[in-house]
Amino acid sequence: MIQLCSNDDPPVSFTVPRKAVELSKTIKTMLEDLEGFDMEQTPIPLPNVDAPTLELIVKWVEQHQDDPPPVEKPRVEDDDSDDSDADDDQEPEVVIPEWDKKFLPTDDEQKNQLFKLLNAANYLEIKPLLDIGCKYVADKISGQTVEWVRDYLNMENDYTPEEEAKLKEEIAWAEGL
């Protein structure tokens, strides 16, 4: 068992099976680097993750600890291959499993929790969780207006009116295509 600590003051700690915690590449690498130390006795502090988020992470990795490891598709860096079609560059099809659908904080009031979860999944390098989370956000955004997306993602429109007009023109052109 491994102990993980949130960044709260005082830290909240969670005890997680090693197998589950190794779904996080960041922690897995760390444990490998610290081979020989008794990691069971040493809590691992996670400075970027708060307690509610860590609780979600722990729930998720425990649920998925027996999943077959994801097939790592070698990322073609400079694709000069002959048959590089457009879909080479696109994300592979991601399907959100039923359990995860219920698990993800999907209510609109909870969206910041969802974003924090994605942040943590990114920091901890839990690729499958990051995939489904980003897929969920993309599905949510898909087909929505710019204003809606801005609002949903808590973003400010920081363009000057001139910049905005110019960009609008460019975008309108691309849409006509």
Partner: peptide
């Protein structure tokens, strides 16, 4: 392409 409009 549209999303470029959201923010800088």
């Amino acid at each position: 392409a549209q999303m470029r409009h959201v923010s800088r």
